[in-house]
Amino acid sequence: MSEPFLIGDGMTGGYGKGPDILHDCTIAVDKGEIAVIVGPNGAGKSTGMKAVFGMLNLNKGSVRLDGEDITKLSPQDRVAKGMGFVPQTHNIFTSMTVEENLEMGAFIRTDDFYETIEQVYELFPILGDKRNQPAGELSGGQRQQVAVGRALMTKPTVLMLDEPTAGVSPIVMDELFDRIIEVARTGISILMVEQNARQALEIADKGYVLVQGANRFTDTGQALLADPEVRKSFLGG
């Protein structure tokens, strides 16, 4: 098996000088695929993804993007390398308009990014309609679209989403998942942490079930959904 496009390999580490939260945890995603991290509360799901993005100190293990070792890079440098990250909260500039949010997403780009903005509007038509409204005035689902759109502005090869559906209604959640699939179809790899495990695994090419900072089950989304043990322990039967 060839090396996946992005892999956090055998990661062990924690925040600052605190105790280790992750224990030999491996998370990977291939080109154009959707990988989903699920697990119980406090399992280290978000931490695992933040480790891939360089937001905590790794004592062991490495992170490689397209074969290149990026373990030592800061999150900002990883953005420049083509990784996009959408935090779970505070992920938009509330006082700025939708379009300004997208412009800020493209801050590190020196070329003309208006084409990318148009692409984001195509993907999320509602944002095009509300481009001149302050992002803070939008609904929860629309805010998440702004957040994703902002991260897409660097034309990333990998998009990482931290619980994108937290706090939105089921209908909005379905719509968001549809959009995420569309993003993946454009060739962008998606790594996502999700609380709504069942729905997320349904769209996932690959699923990681983490427990206490370590891999418990790893398989395709469909296989995990079918696995009776996973269903019993993590999907509520």
């Binding site: 999150p75 935090p87 500039f93 800020m104």
Partner: peptide, 21 residues
């Protein structure tokens, strides 16, 4: 662009850092 980046920084420091400001 610079002015907007100032507003962005004032609005949400972490996200501004993430955006490369």
């Amino acid at each position: 662009r610079t002015g907007k980046s100032m507003r962005a920084y004032s609005d949400n420091e972490d996200l501004a850092l993430l955006s490369g400001i």
